[in-house]
Protein backbone atom coordinates (compact mmCIF):
# COMPACT_ATOMS: atom_id res chain seq x y z
CA UNK A 1 0.00 0.00 0.00
CA UNK A 2 1.41 3.40 -0.92
CA UNK A 3 1.81 6.22 1.54
CA UNK A 4 -0.87 8.20 -0.23
CA UNK A 5 -3.57 5.56 0.19
CA UNK A 6 -2.59 5.03 3.83
CA UNK A 7 -3.40 8.67 4.45
CA UNK A 8 -6.90 8.08 3.09
CA UNK A 9 -7.52 5.10 5.32
CA UNK A 10 -6.22 6.90 8.40
CA UNK A 11 -9.57 8.62 8.94
CA UNK A 12 -11.55 5.48 8.07
CA UNK A 13 -10.98 4.40 11.66
CA UNK A 14 -13.73 5.70 14.00
CA UNK A 15 -11.15 6.49 16.70
CA UNK A 16 -9.08 8.79 14.52
CA UNK A 17 -12.15 10.37 12.92
CA UNK A 18 -13.74 11.14 16.30
CA UNK A 19 -11.79 14.36 17.12
CA UNK A 20 -11.85 15.52 13.48
CA UNK A 21 -15.65 15.21 13.46
CA UNK A 22 -15.89 17.66 16.35
CA UNK A 23 -13.71 20.23 14.61
CA UNK A 24 -15.79 19.95 11.43
CA UNK A 25 -19.05 20.12 13.42
CA UNK A 26 -18.02 23.29 15.26
CA UNK A 27 -16.80 25.05 12.13
CA UNK A 28 -19.93 24.14 10.15
CA UNK A 29 -22.28 25.09 13.00
CA UNK A 30 -20.80 28.61 13.08
CA UNK A 31 -20.99 28.89 9.29
CA UNK A 32 -24.58 27.59 9.31
CA UNK A 33 -25.65 30.40 11.68
CA UNK A 34 -23.85 33.05 9.62
CA UNK A 35 -25.25 31.83 6.30
CA UNK A 36 -28.75 31.59 7.79
CA UNK A 37 -28.63 35.19 9.05
CA UNK A 38 -27.29 36.42 5.71
CA UNK A 39 -29.78 34.33 3.74
CA UNK A 40 -32.77 35.47 5.80
CA UNK A 41 -31.65 39.08 5.51
CA UNK A 42 -31.35 38.90 1.73
CA UNK A 43 -34.45 36.74 1.28
CA UNK A 44 -36.80 38.66 3.55
CA UNK A 45 -35.51 42.24 3.38
CA UNK A 46 -33.34 42.83 0.31
CA UNK A 47 -34.98 40.75 -2.42
CA UNK A 48 -37.89 42.48 -4.16
CA UNK A 49 -41.50 41.31 -4.16
CA UNK A 50 -42.32 38.91 -6.98
CA UNK A 51 -44.43 40.54 -9.69
CA UNK A 52 -46.76 37.54 -10.06
CA UNK A 53 -46.71 35.70 -6.77
CA UNK A 54 -46.46 38.66 -4.38
CA UNK A 55 -44.78 37.98 -1.04
CA UNK A 56 -45.79 34.31 -1.01
CA UNK A 57 -42.81 33.53 -3.24
CA UNK A 58 -40.46 34.16 -0.27
CA UNK A 59 -41.18 30.56 0.77
CA UNK A 60 -38.82 29.42 -2.00
CA UNK A 61 -35.82 30.58 0.05
CA UNK A 62 -36.35 27.58 2.28
CA UNK A 63 -38.31 25.33 -0.06
CA UNK A 64 -35.75 25.04 -2.86
CA UNK A 65 -32.65 24.62 -0.64
CA UNK A 66 -34.52 22.06 1.50
CA UNK A 67 -35.55 20.12 -1.60
CA UNK A 68 -31.95 20.16 -2.88
CA UNK A 69 -30.68 18.92 0.48
CA UNK A 70 -33.31 16.17 0.65
CA UNK A 71 -32.05 14.68 -2.62
CA UNK A 72 -28.36 15.39 -2.05
CA UNK A 73 -28.32 13.88 1.45
CA UNK A 74 -29.97 10.74 0.12
CA UNK A 75 -27.24 10.32 -2.51
CA UNK A 76 -24.53 10.87 0.11
CA UNK A 77 -26.25 8.38 2.44
CA UNK A 78 -26.46 5.78 -0.34
CA UNK A 79 -22.82 6.48 -1.23
CA UNK A 80 -21.62 5.72 2.31
CA UNK A 81 -23.88 2.68 2.45
CA UNK A 82 -22.29 1.42 -0.78
CA UNK A 83 -18.77 2.11 0.53
CA UNK A 84 -19.70 0.24 3.69
CA UNK A 85 -20.92 -2.78 1.72
CA UNK A 86 -17.87 -2.76 -0.54
CA UNK A 87 -15.11 -2.24 2.04
CA UNK A 88 -16.91 -3.36 5.21
CA UNK A 89 -15.86 -0.18 7.03
CA UNK A 90 -17.84 0.54 10.18
CA UNK A 91 -17.47 4.30 9.89
CA UNK A 92 -19.15 4.31 6.45
CA UNK A 93 -22.27 2.66 7.87
CA UNK A 94 -22.22 5.11 10.77
CA UNK A 95 -22.10 8.01 8.29
CA UNK A 96 -25.11 6.59 6.44
CA UNK A 97 -27.04 6.22 9.71
CA UNK A 98 -26.08 9.72 10.81
CA UNK A 99 -27.42 11.31 7.63
CA UNK A 100 -30.83 9.62 7.47
CA UNK A 101 -32.77 11.66 10.09
CA UNK A 102 -31.54 14.99 8.70
CA UNK A 103 -32.38 13.90 5.15
CA UNK A 104 -35.86 12.88 6.23
CA UNK A 105 -36.27 16.23 8.00
CA UNK A 106 -35.33 18.23 4.91
CA UNK A 107 -37.65 16.08 2.79
CA UNK A 108 -40.50 16.86 5.15
CA UNK A 109 -39.61 20.58 5.13
CA UNK A 110 -39.55 20.57 1.31
CA UNK A 111 -43.03 18.99 1.23
CA UNK A 112 -44.41 21.23 3.98
CA UNK A 113 -43.14 24.52 2.57
CA UNK A 114 -44.10 23.45 -0.95
CA UNK A 115 -47.59 22.79 0.23
CA UNK A 116 -47.83 26.22 1.88
CA UNK A 117 -46.50 27.77 -1.33
CA UNK A 118 -48.88 25.76 -3.51
CA UNK A 119 -52.02 26.90 -1.73
CA UNK A 120 -51.75 30.63 -2.64
CA UNK A 121 -50.09 30.08 -6.04
CA UNK A 122 -51.77 26.93 -7.39
CA UNK A 123 -54.88 27.01 -5.25
CA UNK A 124 -54.18 23.64 -3.65
CA UNK A 125 -52.03 22.26 -0.82
CA UNK A 126 -51.37 18.99 -2.58
CA UNK A 127 -51.67 17.32 -5.98
CA UNK A 128 -50.53 13.85 -6.98
CA UNK A 129 -48.20 15.09 -9.68
CA UNK A 130 -44.90 13.37 -10.46
CA UNK A 131 -42.64 15.81 -8.60
CA UNK A 132 -44.66 15.87 -5.40
CA UNK A 133 -45.32 12.14 -5.40
CA UNK A 134 -41.69 11.17 -6.00
CA UNK A 135 -40.59 13.53 -3.22
CA UNK A 136 -43.10 11.83 -0.91
CA UNK A 137 -41.63 8.47 -1.94
CA UNK A 138 -38.22 9.88 -0.91
CA UNK A 139 -39.61 10.61 2.56
CA UNK A 140 -40.87 7.01 2.82
CA UNK A 141 -37.46 5.72 1.67
CA UNK A 142 -35.80 7.61 4.53
CA UNK A 143 -38.41 6.29 6.98
CA UNK A 144 -38.02 2.78 5.57
CA UNK A 145 -34.25 2.94 5.97
CA UNK A 146 -34.51 4.12 9.58
CA UNK A 147 -37.25 1.62 10.46
CA UNK A 148 -35.27 -1.25 8.96
CA UNK A 149 -32.17 -0.22 10.90
CA UNK A 150 -34.16 -0.03 14.12
CA UNK A 151 -35.95 -3.35 13.62
CA UNK A 152 -32.84 -5.56 13.30
CA UNK A 153 -30.97 -6.11 16.55
CA UNK A 154 -27.73 -7.37 15.04
CA UNK A 155 -25.85 -4.19 14.06
CA UNK A 156 -23.96 -5.72 11.14
CA UNK A 157 -27.08 -7.23 9.60
CA UNK A 158 -29.03 -4.01 10.17
CA UNK A 159 -26.32 -2.01 8.41
CA UNK A 160 -26.21 -4.35 5.42
CA UNK A 161 -29.98 -4.55 5.03
CA UNK A 162 -30.28 -0.77 5.36
CA UNK A 163 -27.48 -0.26 2.85
CA UNK A 164 -29.23 -2.41 0.24
CA UNK A 165 -32.46 -0.44 0.73
CA UNK A 166 -30.62 2.88 0.49
CA UNK A 167 -28.80 1.86 -2.71
CA UNK A 168 -31.93 0.53 -4.42
CA UNK A 169 -33.83 3.68 -3.43
CA UNK A 170 -31.29 5.98 -5.07
CA UNK A 171 -33.13 5.30 -8.35
CA UNK A 172 -35.78 7.67 -7.05
CA UNK A 173 -33.47 10.71 -6.93
CA UNK A 174 -33.11 11.22 -10.73
CA UNK A 175 -36.83 10.54 -11.00
CA UNK A 176 -37.50 13.47 -8.64
CA UNK A 177 -35.01 15.70 -10.41
CA UNK A 178 -36.22 15.02 -13.96
CA UNK A 179 -39.90 14.52 -13.09
CA UNK A 180 -40.73 18.07 -14.21
CA UNK A 181 -39.23 17.30 -17.63
CA UNK A 182 -40.44 13.74 -18.13
CA UNK A 183 -44.02 14.32 -17.10
CA UNK A 184 -46.46 17.15 -17.50
CA UNK A 185 -46.36 18.27 -13.86
CA UNK A 186 -48.13 21.09 -12.09
CA UNK A 187 -44.80 21.74 -10.39
CA UNK A 188 -42.75 24.22 -12.38
CA UNK A 189 -39.45 23.33 -14.03
CA UNK A 190 -36.11 24.23 -12.47
CA UNK A 191 -35.31 27.96 -12.24
CA UNK A 192 -31.71 27.10 -11.41
CA UNK A 193 -29.92 24.32 -13.24
CA UNK A 194 -26.44 23.21 -14.24
CA UNK A 195 -26.58 24.19 -17.90
CA UNK A 196 -28.16 27.63 -18.03
CA UNK A 197 -28.18 30.94 -16.19
CA UNK A 198 -30.74 31.16 -13.37
CA UNK A 199 -34.06 32.58 -14.56
CA UNK A 200 -34.61 34.88 -11.59
CA UNK A 201 -33.45 38.21 -10.21
CA UNK A 202 -29.86 38.30 -8.95
CA UNK A 203 -30.82 39.11 -5.33
CA UNK A 204 -33.37 36.30 -5.28
CA UNK A 205 -30.71 33.90 -6.55
CA UNK A 206 -28.23 35.15 -3.94
CA UNK A 207 -30.76 34.61 -1.14
CA UNK A 208 -31.44 31.08 -2.31
CA UNK A 209 -27.75 30.18 -2.58
CA UNK A 210 -27.08 31.59 0.92
CA UNK A 211 -29.89 29.50 2.38
CA UNK A 212 -28.64 26.45 0.49
CA UNK A 213 -25.16 26.96 1.99
CA UNK A 214 -26.75 27.40 5.42
CA UNK A 215 -28.66 24.10 5.13
CA UNK A 216 -25.53 22.45 3.77
CA UNK A 217 -23.42 23.56 6.76
CA UNK A 218 -26.24 22.66 9.17
CA UNK A 219 -26.46 19.15 7.71
CA UNK A 220 -22.72 18.57 7.98
CA UNK A 221 -22.63 19.86 11.58
CA UNK A 222 -25.58 17.73 12.68
CA UNK A 223 -24.30 14.63 10.87
CA UNK A 224 -20.84 15.00 12.43
CA UNK A 225 -22.27 15.29 15.95
CA UNK A 226 -24.51 12.31 15.28
CA UNK A 227 -21.62 10.23 13.96
CA UNK A 228 -19.72 11.00 17.18
CA UNK A 229 -22.69 9.67 19.15
CA UNK A 230 -22.72 6.57 16.95
CA UNK A 231 -18.99 6.00 17.59
CA UNK A 232 -19.42 6.36 21.36
CA UNK A 233 -22.51 4.16 21.47
CA UNK A 234 -20.79 1.37 19.54
CA UNK A 235 -17.67 1.30 21.67
CA UNK A 236 -19.14 -0.79 24.47
Amino acid sequence: MTEQSLKWFWYASPQTFFPLARTIARLCAVLAVLFTLAGLYVGLFVAPTDAVQGEAYRIIYIHVPAAWMSMFLYVVMAFWAAVGLAFNTRLSFMMARALAPTGALFTFIALWTGSLWGRPTWGTYWVWDARLTSELVLLFLYFGYMALQASIDDRRRADRAGAVLAIVGVVNVPIIYYSVKWWNTLHQGASVSFNKAPSMAATMFTGMILMALAFWMYSIAVAMIRVRCEILENQS
Binding site: G54, E55, A56, R58, I59, I62, L105, I109, W112, W117
Partner: peptide
Protein backbone atom coordinates in the same frame (compact mmCIF):
# COMPACT_ATOMS: atom_id res chain seq x y z
CA UNK B 1 -48.34 40.91 7.05
CA UNK B 2 -46.33 39.67 4.03
CA UNK B 3 -48.79 41.23 1.60
CA UNK B 4 -51.64 39.10 2.95
CA UNK B 5 -49.65 35.86 2.79
CA UNK B 6 -48.53 35.92 6.44
CA UNK B 7 -50.05 32.51 7.25
CA UNK B 8 -48.24 30.80 4.38
CA UNK B 9 -44.89 32.56 4.64
CA UNK B 10 -44.58 32.42 8.44
CA UNK B 11 -46.13 28.97 8.50
CA UNK B 12 -43.34 27.78 6.24
CA UNK B 13 -40.50 29.62 8.00
CA UNK B 14 -41.83 28.92 11.50
CA UNK B 15 -42.25 25.18 11.06
CA UNK B 16 -38.89 24.85 9.29
CA UNK B 17 -36.87 26.53 12.03
CA UNK B 18 -38.92 24.89 14.79
CA UNK B 19 -38.16 21.44 13.33
CA UNK B 20 -34.46 22.26 12.95
CA UNK B 21 -34.45 23.39 16.60
CA UNK B 22 -36.15 20.11 17.63
CA UNK B 23 -33.51 18.10 15.78
CA UNK B 24 -30.69 20.02 17.45
Amino acid sequence: AMGGYAFFVWGAYGVTFALLAVEV
